[in-house]
Simulated assay, not measured.
Amino acid sequence: MSKLHISVAMGDYDRNRALYDGRVQIDGCDPVYMLLNPEEMFFRAMRSRDFDITELSFSSYLVKHAKGESPYIAVPVFLSRAFRHTSIYVRKDRIKKPEDLKGCRIGVPEYQLTAVVWARSILQDDYGVNPEDVTWVRGGIDTPGRPEKIKLDLPPGVTIEAAPAGHTISDLLDKGEIDAFIAPRPPSGAALSNPNVAWLFDDPTTVAKDYYRRTGIFPIMHVVGIRKELAEQNRWLPAAVFKAFGESKAKALELLADTSATKVTLPFVEEQLKAARETLGNDFWSYGVEPNRKTIEAFLHHHHAQGLSCRKVGLDELFHPSTYESYSI
């Protein structure tokens, strides 16, 4: 029996490395891996369905899935997670605390980006800054004229403006024409060296740890999607993909914990690993539905409340049915 030839687009992360170097196989598959940045993957996946299996923006997937228009069905593999307190930059000469953002202008690359959804939820839940309390200015981080990947139908009271032609939101932050900036990447160019531009939270790690202790939420950014027709034709495939990505992550964590010679080019890795386990538990980067129920349900709530998903999607319909449960021995 010949193997299924598939294309797989994903980021170059340690948790994926055992897949593309061949140490872990997807059962029954002969994959071609493409290691791409998120912007390219997500644009090509949603615009032209270029890949059989692909990393997806959680938010973009949910926008499409809620309408029944997603070309992909997700499996609960969460390749990117991050506490987005570090995604909020402000003009420190005018913004001293989160509540000061009311009435301000905030730059975003796209309104529906997952990182931006999570950051808005933090500002709303913890500091009372609602989406309609600010003016959102949409534009590229490095390149002017970035389009919104997906057409949105936002609720009344939400104000979005396009950045002036030829300008990025990084430029606008540097010049003081916006008060804040929220994005998955930091501002670029002169804004990075501007002494008036800095994180909103002076110690975002401490704030994020407090957020986790209060909420139990470790924000999910990306999921893995399989083209629907491929999953329908090969009903064994979603479970095989879920299994393989989990095995690859397990190998990455084994290496990370081997401190005889650190596997990442960063000091204090052993200390950071210990701190992560003390705060989030040993399975701090879990895949699967049940270990992540609280985080997923919070995102479903905020995504719909922010007007991005046209209906409240239930957790039981979010992923391929075969990935909600697994065998045990």
Rank of each mutant, 00 (worst) to 15 (best):
D174C: 09
I26P: 02
T143D: 07
T262P: 06
W285L: 13
M41W: 08
L123V: 04
Q25N: 13
V269L: 14
K251F: 10
P321Y: 02
V137E: 00
D12Y: 10
R138L: 15
D125F: 04
T159C: 12
E232W: 09
E99M: 05
A191T: 06
V269F: 05
H85A: 05
D100K: 03
P186H: 00
L266R: 15
G107L: 09
R91G: 05
S60R: 10
S60K: 12
D210N: 12
T54N: 05
A180I: 02
G281F: 03
H5K: 15
S248V: 02
P164V: 04
A165E: 14
D316R: 11
K96W: 03
L237Q: 01
D30L: 11
R185C: 09
F83E: 06
A275T: 10
V224C: 00
S286D: 08
E161K: 13
F43T: 14
M10D: 03
A298R: 12
R17E: 12
S57V: 04
R185P: 08
E317N: 15
L255K: 15
V269M: 11
A119Y: 01
E110N: 09
M34P: 03
R23S: 10
V134E: 02
A275R: 11
F181T: 02
F43W: 11
D171A: 04
H302F: 10
G281P: 03
P187A: 00
G157S: 07
A244R: 00
T295L: 01
G189V: 04
N194Y: 05
M1C: 14
V63I: 15
I106D: 01
S48T: 15
L308K: 03
F42A: 00
G225E: 07
P321W: 07
E110T: 14
I182E: 00
T259P: 01
